[in-house]
Design a protein around this nucleic acid. Structure first.
Lengths: 164, 164
DNA sequence: GTTTCTCTACTCGGATATCTGATGTCCGAGTGCACGCGG
DNA sequence: CCGCGTGCACTCGGACATCAGATATCCGAGTAGAGAAAC
């Protein structure tokens, strides 16, 4: 079980967008430059966030991405599910259906004790992620690294002004 | 994020081994036949459980697999980690290190707020899995499907006696 | 000077390669049992 | 009849294919803004 690399990128980008959300979109190119990431691939990940309704995209020059709603209404779970998909990690193929006493008609996701256990654990995971918001992360970051926000904004501004 | 298919197989097999653990090993072939699974691949998964110390293997005729310790001392987490590996699902590559204010020396798994959040959620997931034991699963199964244990044992016995 | 039109540069978005890891298969090493042979 | 040796069938264990999905890239559609031309 491994999460896509894009999850880490998406979360960091969302924090940055939360800081910069003065109504001015930020392009994927700028974000990629900030974190030294492959621009096209980062763009692809951000597209997932748009499809999931977490971000809004603006085309054309001065375009880019911005949060689709207030940062305190975007949970970490929203971002993770946008990248990873909404399916549960544990797939119950109902191998019990092939068992001697098995019944192909039954809904094994509900009846199978094992599937239930796995589901319960996954629910705990999602609950924990749902408790955290992008705004909360941003706030914690500012508290720990007071200059982080200013640094990021300065960097973004520099790269959009000085066309080095 | 998807768990390997082998996790489901391994858990069902462990429950069966808990039922049959009269000191008599069960071969991967019998288990595969029981669940209609590819024998060689199931064998591969069970090998992971052996390497992790969950199962013991016995070679030769009348050989097979058996639980390495009492079923109530084997948690679902043990089985999952045996198949999936012990690494955390969230890989923090420390992309902050490449950031303007970044510091390549820092341990971002600890300092990065995002990595911490993901870690906390994953801990909740593992905790939930650690609460469940193979014995508990087997007990729940017996309570819900009283004939399950007898059916499985009968099927295993039949396939080992009647060489059809 | 102002308005309008055009052109350009920049952005997202999806279609397209590549590569790692999951899935599935095969064969060799080792071992306990059965059978046969000798005492 | 009893003990021993040999052969065999069965098992695990790891090496070897195959395939799906993650990773990475490229090009086209659309657009805002700048600049030029006309009034």
């Amino acid at each position: 079980m491994k999460l896509n690399q894009g999850v880490e990128w998406a979360l960091h980008c969302c924090v940055n967008l939360a800081w910069a959300s003065a109504g001015e979109p930020i392009s994927s190119g700028r974000l990629a430059e900030l974190y030294k990431l492959p621009p096209a691939y980062l763009n692809k990940q951000l597209q997932c966030l748009v499809r999931a309704g977490v971000l809004q995209s603006v085309s054309g020059p001065r375009g880019g991405f911005q949060l689709a709603r207030r940062a305190d209404r975007i949970s970490v779970l929203d971002v993770v599910l946008a990248i990873e998909g909404r399916d549960l990690a544990f797939r119950c193929d109902g191998i019990l259906a092939n068992c001697p006493g098995g019944d192909a008609e039954q809904d094994y996701l509900r009846s199978c004790i094992i599937a239930q256990s796995m589901r319960q654990a996954e629910l705990a995971w999602r609950t924990e992620l749902a408790r955290q918001t992008v705004a909360g992360i941003a706030q914690s970051l500012e508290r720990r690294f007071p200059q982080a926000r200013a640094d990021s904004l300065a960097q973004l501004r520099a790269s959009s002004d000085g066309r080095d």
